[in-house]
């Protein structure tokens, strides 16, 4: 339950930064917080009190955490990083034209 709470708070914070802040870089940060909240939740939720799912040589099989969500989260992180990089690039490009990264001053984003 604690995990869910923290997830909701982080998710809402990220969404708030994305929606309400006018600085485009801050928006991207918000987007990343939002994604990170989901990753965090997945890892925390799949924790059943076991170990990381890596066998150790000479040791017997003990209680493992689920490896699948961890692998999926790894994929998600990489994808999130790539999209963030693309977005930041576009913001750099837009800055060349407008000399600002403030959303309120860039009329074209609204329509």
């Amino acid at each position: 339950m604690r995990n869910n709470f923290i997830f909701i708070i982080l998710f809402m914070l990220g969404l708030y930064a994305l929606i309400m802040k006018t600085n485009l870089i801050k928006n991207v940060i918000g987007l990343n917080i939002m994604e990170a909240s989901i990753f965090f939740w997945v890892i925390a939720f799949s924790d059943v009190g076991g170990e990381v799912a890596i066998h150790k040589m000479g040791e017997e099989f003990s209680k493992f955490n689920d490896p699948v969500p961890q692998a999926l989260t790894l994929t998600g992180i990489v994808i999130g990083a790539s999209t963030a990089a693309l977005l930041l690039t576009l913001i750099i490009e837009l800055n060349q034209f407008t000399d600002t990264i403030d959303r309120d001053e860039i009329e074209g984003l609204n329509n």
């Binding site: 994305l18 987007l31 977005l87 490009e93 860039i106 074209g108």
Partner: peptide, 14 residues
């Protein structure tokens, strides 16, 4: 790589 193009892409990606 035009001004509206990058705006549109940013909005699209958001």
């Amino acid at each position: 790589r035009s001004h509206p193009g990058s705006e549109a892409a940013i909005k699209y990606l958001f």
